[in-house]
Design a protein around this nucleic acid. Structure first.
Lengths: 225, 225
DNA sequence: CTATGCAATTTTGTATACCAGAGATGCGTT
DNA sequence: AACGCATCTCTGGTATACAAAATTGCATAG
């Protein structure tokens, strides 16, 4: 999409990965000079990269005050999860209608992978497999624009979403929900698949309170922005 | 969101307006040098602005080959309308549940405005009022993230959406649909409001063919990207 | 007359230098 | 001792200069 120069593109990908995987945490300062030295390029491509990331919402830059990894407010977090749930629901609905058999078989394999990892109570490994399962459904909707939009929101929520699974019992519950979603998609029951996915992703009531309770300091900023 | 320098921000807004309002058409070349001369600034803020616009998808830049106003493929157009319909449907659903009375009254006024303009068969004036009506519903969903996402997609579709209303009879039909949507929102019937909005925005079957038929040359590019 | 290849020009991508604004720090005054 | 103002420094914003790549046009050969 944002096709900048080669150096800048590389930087975008590296920084994106670091942010999504949690190496860089919300609130971390991204100094242009240090970045340019660290990567051995001038400030220009660094600025372009930060610009691009700001466009996708992963970082926030205040004029004359520098750039930081985007930290969002509680209100925004709730809003974004609300939208995320609906986008994924749409993916699931469309996937139920459009996903070819061979891809469904692949989806089944990914679900099995999740189940296998769930036994070992390794939240991080499960998280990775979970991402693959969800991405397979994004791809199944056969709407690459929707797929991009969904991934974009997912990336922005990644630092927070990762925390969810560290709640005791959540991994098991998540895995059970996968089974139901999978069967709905496999049976072509679009509305059911959508509804299940919506509930799977939405963070409401108790779950929201639990999530907010374990969000580290600095991941959220006060409402006054 | 993308807080760049003052000059760059100005440029973003100007170019955005020109693209959304159709002054700049899909496929138009955006030369950095001419733009910098035209606005009396150096190339740097121009590049930043183009970068930002590329991030939001309004322009496309190919490395070493320059930047043009984004022209999308038929496939993308269909995909984007599909997502747009769902985003607006979500706005309508939430608006039906959350919109305060006073805002609904305002929405009624906007619908009346549309009706009044519809009589005069002035497609452009109707288009503007139509935008205000829809934006009031975006605001009514009380989810500013969803509002931003929706507006972003809407902007990208603007050059094509504008064409829709020039189809004979479409304005009248659109206006009738507004009335139904309005009453559903007013009555708090979320699912109905969503469904109506989805159908209102979606471009399917005959309507899609009609739209494609009147899209000017250059607005669409061949599928091979 | 056409096609291919080379060269020149145009335009983008990168680096660097310069400028301006915001925050920090220290000194003076009350 | 505390508050306020001024200055100083650090960081971002802008301009410009330079390098690399792509397109275009012309020339030459088939």
């Amino acid at each position: 999409m944002a096709q900048n120069g080669k150096l800048a593109t590389d930087l975008v990908q590296k920084l994106e990965r670091d942010i999504v995987t949690g190496v860089l945490k919300p609130g971390d300062k991204l100094d242009e000079r240090s970045l340019s030295e660290r990567f051995g390029v001038s400030r220009t491509p660094v600025r372009e990269a930060l610009q691009t990331l700001a466009g996708s919402g992963l970082v926030a830059t205040m004029p004359r005050r520098g750039t930081i990894v985007a930290s969002i407010t509680v209100a925004e977090l709730i809003e974004m999860f609300e939208v995320m749930a609906e986008l994924e629901a749409m993916c699931a609905r469309l996937a139920a209608r459009r996903m070819p058999r061979v891809d469904i078989d692949n989806l089944i394999a990914l679900a099995d992978e999740c189940s296998a990892l769930q036994e070992h109570a390794d939240a991080d490994a499960y998280y990775e497999a979970n991402v693959r399962f969800h991405e397979a459904i994004y791809a199944g909707c056969r709407n690459s624009f929707l797929e991009r939009q969904t991934k974009n929101v997912r990336n922005r929520l990644a630092p927070y979403r990762r925390l969810q699974l560290h709640r005791p019992g959540r991994v098991k519950k998540s895995n059970n929900e996968h089974a139901d979603i999978l069967s709905a998609i496999s049976n072509g029951e679009a509305d059911i698949a959508g509804k299940l996915m919506q509930q799977h992703v939405a963070v409401q009531g108790e779950a929201l309170n639990d999530l907010l309770a374990i969000v580290p300091r600095g991941y959220l900023e006060p409402l006054a922005s």
